[in-house]
Design a protein around this nucleic acid. Structure first.
Lengths: 232, 232
DNA sequence: CGCGGCTTTGATGTTCATCAAGTAAAGTGG
DNA sequence: CCACTTTACTTGATGAACATCAAAGCCGCG
């Protein structure tokens, strides 16, 4: 986990993410100057529930998961995030900055750390930035809530189908991909047991809807998978 | 549904809600001047999914529900809101202001309408207001997500117990209260069927944990209900 | 090479939704 | 205000969906 300071390759972020769209040149320079960057290996924990967060954490490359642990130790994965996603906005709690979520790394990743004090200052002095920030916040929050509702209105086959399509369409943007998560983690995302995730994937395999080779998944019949996701 | 303009009794809001804490006097005046107020009768719909919202809607008195309808017509109640709650913040979507939620009134209610253009302007010119606004937004969003996770990790008895405690502790702040929702709506809140809501309530009645008289509920054994909620 | 974690499949049991049927309550129109 | 209709509530019986338990193979890693 090497830490690098003062790296200024944020142009991509600016272009690709709404929230930095309206920064003035000197403000952007300041973000760059105070930005830190860290690399994490697959499986490492970035922060945990209850931890004080003093930075806005931003995924530059790789894949991460945000998860929530109940008091009884059960894990719910709330969201997967690809680079430039904004879920981490929700981890900056009001006043105290205690996160109610945890974050860990699913594929080797590089994260950017922007001090919250700077972000707060920018919100303070740059109204357009504040508006973009809020817009992104609401979008992220609503997406998360909507995804929950969508998932929990489906039966098991529907959920698994939905998640496979989500990976294919939103994360990897192709029909063959390596699962970034274990079967157990899939279960934690879509809210079912590991055994039933496996069983359902096997069913799909037998029905020739997908091809499975360990962690490699190929979607053979996207149409049918969509139907299962929709009506499941 | 009578509409009243230019009513300036917002002091209570200012005191009771964080988001108006840092308004300057002249800004506050402006909020008051442009504020509209509407009364709704029990059961009326305030706005629906897909509707363009041009105001921040604020509950002054009464009780409302926010709900989400799936494409298949299934209803999920996302949240109940008491006066001065902030859920409506989440309905102001980025850029377009199309709400993904619907809102209707559970008890006769009075709502305040503050033009979004004014809110946006305030965010723009008053950094402290913007920060309070964001803080409230994140708090609301996290509460909503957390409540979902909590509920969906429980079995039926646990969910019903949780909801009864929620009404008792958060909404009415006493052990006897009138249910503001039908059995069907309870089902839509906690994600189960109407029949099983009724069945579970009957069980609790037979076990002398609660007393039921139509819509009136009295919690007799809070301790046991808490245990059921916690371990269910 | 052996241990622990991940995966897979089958058998079993529980939980919950669905179906059915009846009662009570609340509107609605004459 | 009363017959009528509709909507909400209630209970029981049944079956489907899903979790749990058990057992075995696989794989990576010390």
């Amino acid at each position: 986990m090497n830490e690098v300071k003062y790296v200024c390759d944020c142009k991509e972020c600016i272009i690709r993410n709404l929230i930095f769209k309206h920064l003035r040149s000197e403000e952007f320079q300041e973000v760059c100057r105070s930005k830190t960057q860290k690399s994490f290996k697959k499986g490492q924990v970035v922060f945990e529930k209850g931890q004080l967060l003093e930075h806005l954490i931003y995924l530059k490359s790789g894949l991460v998961k945000y998860y929530y642990s109940t008091n009884e130790g059960k894990v719910n994965i709330i969201s997967l995030s690809i680079p430039f996603d904004a879920f981490s906005l929700l981890t900056i709690l009001h006043n105290e900055q205690i996160s109610i979520y945890s974050m860990s790394v699913l594929e080797d990743s590089t994260l950017c750390y922007i001090p919250l004090s700077l972000i707060k200052n920018l919100i303070h002095i740059n109204g357009d930035f504040a508006l973009d920030f809020i817009s992104k916040l609401i979008e992220t929050s609503n997406k998360t809530i909507e995804q929950f509702l969508t998932l929990h209105n489906k039966n098991l086959r529907g959920r698994v189908a939905y998640f496979m399509l989500y990976l294919s369409d939103n994360i990897y943007k192709k029909n063959i991909f390596e699962l970034p998560v274990s079967r157990k983690e899939i279960a934690e995302i879509i809210g079912m047991t590991t055994e039933n995730v496996i069983r359902t994937l096997s069913e799909f395999r037998k029905e020739k809807i997908i091809k499975i080779n360990g962690k490699e998944i190929e979607i053979l019949e996207k149409e049918r998978l969509s139907k299962i996701s929709q009506y499941g």
